[in-house]
Design a protein around this nucleic acid. Structure first.
Lengths: 229, 229
DNA sequence: GAGTGGTCTAGACCACGCC
DNA sequence: GCGTGGTCTAGACCACTCG
């Protein structure tokens, strides 16, 4: 009964999906499993740790390991750069900057990302195209206190999102997804009727605790985010 | 310079966010890092393995480890059972079955989940409430070829989703998220005007390769899915 | 071929959390 | 207290893949 941690993982998962291990039931301890599979405890540990990370089982010291009562289901959605998303569909990407203004942060924005009221921000709106057709509208606010160098950039070659990734490759992000009705401006950009439902993603980005940028991405009508788990 | 795998992870991540390690740059090999941190290679390995799993770095045998050029961004959204979601908001959960019919699978459904045309399915619609207010509309199709026992269940106590989880706790799921306009029926259920944008999630569930169920969940107006990464 | 990550062993100490 | 998982060590062999 020798095996790798993958074999053990697969075996335990099989027992769960086949009903031999039911939700809530206890799984044998690491020592016992190690004997059973003829491996070290470390190997069993890795198998169980990964199953726990995937939300299949729950582990607690002293009380041991059990199958989750209600499997923790989570879907992972890729957050692609719009250029790559468009190009992966085999379409030609382009974008246009619609507006660009340096303004004091409006109250709702300051509250949303934790910025001092009236702190200077750069407000940009862009439209991203796939084969010339409107694909995504970007409403972007950049904290100039954190990124003053944004003042000197025209975002014609590199869109704001891509420029920001180059500046701050790794950051903390809060994401919100909603369905919103297109207002007059969005409708004009997207070439749809006002009131058309659009899938909207808002992201607030921080770096080392400081607010960096806030963006509202409105996808074209009919846009669908997909994944599997 | 002793430390745990967490310390090493944090240290490398810090070097990346601070720019000491830029996207695309090579990270020292495991042996060298082990010496540097004064730990075993296994410990370094775990730190790097987790960073790779999080999409921060890329690892390849022979060529080594490097910081990802374009950080792989992905957001994980919890897919909660609606009852738990409502109760976590401190509201009282209830649901009502609006309709229930055994029908041959319509063409679009058969195509969507890979079912034989006209295979018998159970079609249910439910409305889930939070403190009596409409929260989510469920449009559920259950493959009776796989789950004939669904015929004998009234879903008054346990909603279809929860019943299904009890039947098939672990399965493969395809998820799609869109923004849709409420039709007359949905608008009546939700108490909103027809055409109101609703965040809609579709899930197709398979078990051991066989289609089990398809569901379209329509959330109340203003619903927001959130996460952070 | 040779270098790098992938994984396993055997043994150990630790820390959390029930009882 | 004491049992269970969490983690580390020291050493080893393997497998992928680049040059």
């Amino acid at each position: 009964m020798t095996g790798t941690y993958r074999d053990i993982k697969a075996d335990i998962l099989r027992q769960i999906t086949r009903g031999a291990l039911t939700p809530g039931s206890q799984i044998a301890g690491e020592v016992e499993l190690a004997e059973h599979y003829g491996v070290t405890r470390v190997t069993v540990n890795r198998a169980l740790r990964e199953l726990a990370a995937e939300g299949i089982i729950e582990r607690r010291r002293k009380s041991g390991t059990r199958v989750r009562l209600s499997p923790l289901r989570q879907a992972r959605f890729d957050i692609p750069v719009v250029r790559h998303e468009v190009e992966e569909r085999g379409a030609a990407y382009s974008h246009a900057v619609l507006s660009r203004r340096e303004v004091p942060a409006p109250g709702w924005l300051a509250a949303q990302i934790g910025l001092a009221a009236n702190a200077p921000v750069l407000h940009l709106t862009c439209l991203h195209h796939a084969d010339g057709a409107p694909y995504q509208h970007e409403d972007r606010w950049i904290n100039l206190g954190q990124l003053p160098q944004a003042r000197g950039v025209d975002f014609a070659d590199l869109g704001p999102t891509e420029w920001l990734i180059a500046q701050i490759p790794f950051s903390e992000v809060e994401v919100g997804l909603t369905a919103e009705a297109a207002d007059a401006e969005l409708a004009a950009c997207m070439g749809c009727a006002p009131g058309t439902p659009l899938l909207q993603m808002e992201r607030a980005t921080r770096w080392e605790g400081q607010p960096v940028t806030f963006v509202r991405l409105s996808h074209h009508p009919g846009y669908r985010m997909t994944t599997r788990y």
